[in-house]
C-alpha cells in the first residue's frame, strides 16, 4: 500500500469551496475551477473538459453521496501547482459508492434500451481527466480526486 499523494504541501495554494447539495450549484464549482484554470494557462478545450468533469463529480456527490439532502455539503478543493491542477470533490457519504460503480463501462447500445439512461458521469470523468482516483474523504464521505495536467 502506498500513501495517497498529499495535496497540501506548504507551498500549495488551495481553494476550498463548500456548496449546498442541490442541483444547479455545481455551476458555482465549474465557474470557480475554470476561473483558476484559465489563469493557470489552460487552453479553452481543456477548461471545457475540466468543467464537464467537475459538473459530473459534483452532481454525483449531490445525487448519490448526499442523496439530495440539501443540508449536506459538497466540498470542492482546488490545488494549483506549477504543472497541474488537482481537484477533489467530497460528499458527506450518506450513501457509499461501491467499488464496481467507480469504473463503469457504459455502452450506448445498452443505454438505449435501458430505463435508466444515466451512469455516464464517472465514465466521462475518467475519459476527460488525466488522473482519477476514488477514495474516502477525511470526513468519511466519498471523494474523487482528479488531476489535469498543464501542457504548455
Amino acid at each position: 500500500m502506498t500513501d495517497p499523494p498529499s495535496d497540501n504541501g506548504p507551498a500549495e495554494r488551495v481553494i476550498e469551496l463548500r456548496l449546498p447539495s442541490k442541483l444547479g450549484y455545481e455551476k458555482v464549482a465549474m465557474d470557480t475551477a475554470s476561473s483558476l484554470a484559465r489563469r493557470m494557462g489552460f487552453v479553452p478545450e481543456r477548461i471545457e473538459a475540466l468543467r464537464t468533469a467537475i459538473a459530473e463529480a459534483v452532481t454525483n456527490a449531490i445525487e448519490h453521496g448526499n442523496a439530495h439532502d440539501s443540508e449536506m455539503r459538497v466540498l470542492v478543493m482546488l490545488t494549483a501547482r506549477e504543472d497541474e491542477l488537482v481537484v477533489r470533490v467530497a460528499d458527506e457519504g450518506r450513501k457509499q459508492l461501491g467499488q464496481e460503480q467507480t469504473a463503469p463501462t457504459p455502452r450506448i447500445e445498452e443505454a438505449l434500451t435501458r430505463q435508466d439512461k444515466g451512469g455516464w458521469g464517472i465514465w466521462l470523468i475518467r475519459e476527460l481527466m488525466d488522473e482519477v482516483e476514488f477514495t474516502t474523504a477525511p470526513s468519511g464521505g466519498n471523494q474523487v480526486r482528479m488531476v489535469i495536467h498543464l501542457e504548455r
Binding site: V14, I15, L17, R18, L19, Y25, S35, R39
Partner: peptide
C-alpha cells in the same frame, strides 16, 4: 456557499 482562498493578491479574482 463558503469559500476559502489563500491570502494573496490575485486570488480575489477566483
Amino acid at each position: 456557499i463558503e469559500l476559502s482562498v489563500p491570502s494573496e493578491l490575485g486570488y480575489e479574482k477566483i
